[in-house]
Design a binder for these strands. Structure first.
Lengths: 237, 237
DNA sequence: ATATTTAACCTGTATGTACAAGTTATCACT
DNA sequence: AGTGATAACTTGTACATACAGGTTAAATAT
C-alpha cells in the first residue's frame, strides 16, 4: 500500500485537512498549483482529489476549486455522522456528558458481537456517554474499544469531546465502515431513569460494529434513543 | 445534461444492465473493446465505468474485468436496499403480500411530510404491503406516489413484485436519495394485529421521503417493523 | 499426466496535451 | 455610480500513449 503517487498526495492533503491547515470552507491549492508543486500531472492530482471527494473531505466546484468540508454531512445518523448533526441545523443545544470516562475493564460476558481471540485477550476500553438536547436526555451510548496499541487513551480527555476525532488525530485510526442492528425495545428501569422515560416505553436500540483503517481493528457501540420528542433523522444519496 | 460522451456510454450500459442484457456476475466487454466499439479513448470509457461503479451496477477487478452487480448491496435497509436483502443471506423465506394494490386516492389529511401545491393537486397512488419471514409478518409498508405521469400504474401488477423495478423500467424513474425519520413507538390495536404483536409492544417506525431522477418528484413511505425476532441490519462504507 | 512457464489478455497508474465551460475580479464604457 | 465586456483564473471533458501488475488459459517441460 501507499506505493502510488496519487495515494501519497491523497494522504498528504488529508493529513493537512485533519490537522487544521485548511479550515471548513477553505479552498485547496488549485490542481495546477498542486501538480506544479508536487511534480505530478494534473491527471494524477485529480485522482488524489477524487479520493478526497469520495471520502467527503472536499467538495469540488467547477470554475472555483476544491472546497474543504470538515463536517462531513454526506451520511446520516445511522452512519458515522456526529450526534450534533443528527438533530442539528435547528437552534437546539446539544450537549455531551461522559458518565464513565475511558477506563480499562474486562469484556462483558455475552457481549453483543462475537469477538476474536486477539480482541478477547486485550480487554476493553469502556466509555459511557449521554447526549442531550436542551437538557432532555436523548441518547445513551456505550462504547467498547479493544485495548490494542491505544496507550494513553485511558482516562484521557477526548479531543473536541469526540472519540472519533481523538482516534484519527492521535492514533491515525479512521472509521470507514459500520455494521448495525436496529430494534425497538421496552425500556427497563435503568434506561427509563437515564432517558427520562417510563418503564416499558418504546426505546430505539442500535448495536454497532465499526470497521477502521487499521486492519482487523473494530469498535463496538450500543446506543439507546428516547425518540419521544426527537426522531432520528438521516439522509442518503 | 447528457451532452458528454462518457455520460452517453454510462446510460447505454446502465440501460443494458437494467434490461437484462447482462446477468448478475457477467463480465462487461473489456475497456479496450468498449473504446474500440464506441470510438472513444479508454480514459473516457473508464470514466463511464467509474460512474457505474459509484452507483453499484458493477464491481471492477484488476486483471479480470467489470463484473455486473445486479443486487446492489452497497447500502443497507436504512437506505434503498430491497427487503429481501435486509434479512436475506440466510435460508429465510421472505414473502411480499400486497394488501391494497396500486390505487388512486386523495392524500391523507395531516400527511407526514409537507407536500407542495403540485403534489397536492395530483392526488396519490397508494400501496399497502406486508413483508414476512417464514410466515411471520415483519414489516408493514404504506407507499404514496404523487400521480404525475404515471399512466398505467394503477391496478397494474408490479415487475418482479418490486415497485422500484417497475418505476425504473417502465417510467425511467430511479430513486437516488432518501430522507428518513426513525422512531420507536407503541403498537396500536391495528398494528398489533397486522404484525402479530401485543398492544403497546415496541414497534420500529420509519417515515421516508425518496428523491428520484425526475426532478421535483418524490415518493413517500411509512414503515412499521416488528423487531422482536429480526433486527434491522444495515451496512455502510 | 502433471507441473511449470509463457503469452495474451485484463484493469491500474502515470505522463502529456488540448479545449470546453463555470467563476470572479478588473477594466472600460456609459 | 453602475453596467457590461474581458481576461485570468478555476475545474471538466477528451484525446493519445506507455508501462505496471493481476488473471487465465494455452504451450512447454518434466
Amino acid at each position: 500500500m501507499q506505493d502510488y503517487r496519487y495515494q501519497s498526495l491523497h494522504q498528504f492533503l488529508k493529513s493537512q485537512i485533519l490537522h487544521g491547515v485548511y479550515e471548513d470552507g477553505d479552498l485547496l491549492p488549485s490542481e495546477n498549483e498542486l501538480s506544479q508543486f508536487h511534480k505530478l500531472t494534473r491527471t494524477t492530482v485529480r485522482q488524489a482529489l477524487s479520493e478526497l471527494q469520495k471520502e467527503g473531505y472536499i467538495v469540488k466546484q467547477k470554475g472555483k476549486g476544491s472546497i474543504v468540508n470538515i463536517r462531513r454531512k454526506r451520511l446520516g445518523l445511522l452512519s458515522f455522522k456526529g450526534f450534533s448533526e443528527v438533530i442539528g441545523h435547528s437552534d437546539q443545544k446539544v450537549s455531551n456528558t461522559v458518565l464513565s470516562g475511558p477506563l480499562l475493564q474486562n469484556w462483558p460476558k455475552d457481549f453483543f458481537y462475537d469477538l476474536n481471540a486477539l480482541e478477547k485477550s486485550a480487554r476493553c476500553i469502556y466509555l459511557k456517554r449521554i447526549r442531550s438536547v436542551n437538557t432532555d436526555p436523548v441518547m445513551l451510548e456505550e462504547t467498547y474499544l479493544p485495548n490494542q496499541n491505544l496507550e494513553g487513551l485511558i482516562g484521557k480527555k477526548l479531543i473536541k469531546g469526540s472519540l472519533f476525532s481523538t482516534l484519527i488525530l492521535q492514533y491515525q485510526i479512521e472509521v470507514n465502515s459500520m455494521d448495525q442492528d436496529v430494534r425497538a425495545i421496552k425500556a427497563n428501569a435503568h434506561l427509563a431513569k437515564t432517558l427520562s422515560l417510563n418503564e416499558n416505553d418504546p426505546v430505539l436500540h442500535i448495536y454497532r460494529k465499526y470497521g477502521t483503517s487499521r486492519p482487523g481493528y473494530f469498535i463496538y457501540s450500543s446506543l439507546y434513543f428516547n425518540t419521544e420528542n426527537y426522531a432520528i433523522g438521516s439522509y442518503f444519496k
